[in-house]
Write a protein that binds this DNA or RNA. Sequence first.
RNA 1: GCGCCUGUAGCUCAGCGGAAGAGCGGCGGCCUUCUAAGCCGUUGGUCGGGGGUUCGAAUCCCUCCAGGCGCACCA
Length: 507
Amino acid sequence: MEARAIARLAAALSEAAGADVQLDRPNDPEHGDYATNAALRLAPVRRRPPRQLAEELAAAARAVDAVERAEVAGPGFVNLWLGRSWFGEALDEILRVGRDFGAGSAARRERVQVEMVSANPTGPVTVASARNGAYGDCVARLLEFAGHDVQREYYYNDAGAQVERFRASVEARRRGDDPPADGYHGAYVDDLARLEGDPLPVMLAQIERTLERFRIHFDTWALQSELERELPQILDRLPTYEKDGALWVRSTDFGDTRDRVLIRSPERGALPTYEAADIVYLKQKLDRGFDRAIYVLGADHQDVRGWYAVVARMLGYEEPRVEVLLYQLVHLTRGGEKTRMAKRRGDVVFLDELMDEVGVDAARWYLVSRGPDQTIEIDVDLAAEKTQKNPVYYVQYAHARIAGILRNAGSAEVGAAPPGELAREERELVKRLLEFPALVTEATERRGPHAIPLYAIRVADDFHRFYHEHRVLGSGAQAFRLGLCRATQDLLARCLDLIGVEAPARM
RNA sequence: GCGCCUGUAGCUCAGCGGAAGAGCGGCGGCCUUCUAAGCCGUUGGUCGGGGGUUCGAAUCCCUCCAGGCGCACCA
């Protein structure tokens, strides 16, 4: 989705040129407000020199109202400069929609379930799970902003071997013994041992509290034990066979890399495997009425991606309804030395500790600012120092600065029409704001929320520059500049909200 | 061995078919003016190597090198 002001301009140019004209924002301000490579694209099709086509396109562009100047440059680019009335209309468009600027890009409203975190409740939320949550929650927020109906779900194993090991570890501490070698050893096990009863619900409640603090709210919690109860009905519909006492499914018939065990052999407890529950779970998700089921998984579960596609095929669902989002792992270093993150050993950094050290805003910002395919390295010792330099404060500061101006402005008139020629900083800021609809749409479709904080830095950048060069209150352009301020503030607040970071009015 | 991901400025990373970028670091400037958590200047790159496709490649294809992560009757 493109901002209307840009879409209208592109349409007018396309009509004048008799060809599809797409607009880009050149990096170099010398290359105009917008530029198009339409002549370069067209040259091979029309078998004509690109420069010649560009000259014709430029001539046609000059006839378009909004265009003040059009020049041919380089191998066949056409650079465009726009008049002030176009900027006024563009800002007016942004102010009219306010916080909804860029929203509603979804062609069709879908019911989407995003399942995330889903760590077994055998310990506090780790930093690795925090990335899962930060990423998944931001994807969910983007989908909601696009107009979809999104549900966040947490899935956990409440009856498997790991959970039993966890319970046994707590029991051992209660007796005054050391936990078993293959059990859990963190200090949190000692804390749980001091309480009575099943430690699982306690742990689960703590996980939920941590995630709420991290600003992730789960609508539903799914239990593996409940899914397993529905397993028998599904087994008949699958191509299963027995081998070595276990029950297997012939998933290779559906393109799997190997057949999978669904029910273990008697000597291994005859219990259903995770894969068995996966099948029931997917069926249940899609039968519950979701158009799309999104799984958020760490790269150490990458083989599961292919597996879910196989499950969808076995159950007869269209594959696009199942989507697996992978993100690379988070590595922690202490003073340059790598630390392992094994929950059972207890030498981990928990999300609560990270939030204590750097704050919720910085933690979220940090975990979502990198592309999902990029491994994140956090030096725990440097994380706290990062606070003052973190770009999150740069963006929040821009928001707070604007809030200050608007407070001082009181009920002064807010307008969109520039009273005279726009200054360079004003032009750049308006064009930056106009990038948002296309950018947020792409971030949503590509499941790449990291584009949002990076864009927010650019917006803050342009605003700080504008602020530094131009006085708002008391200037001849006060109403226009107040409009620019409000539009910028709304957009920054939107960007921060999309990544779950607060937009303070004062700092 | 097979599969997925990564390799862009000293460091951390964007960009993924159209005119090489940001933050941090380094160096040097700017506060009687709506918040200096700010602004400006400067320093910095055979976009891992080699082939190919294209008018045009950091971006697509092949190959090699380096690193991370997976290929269980674990979860």
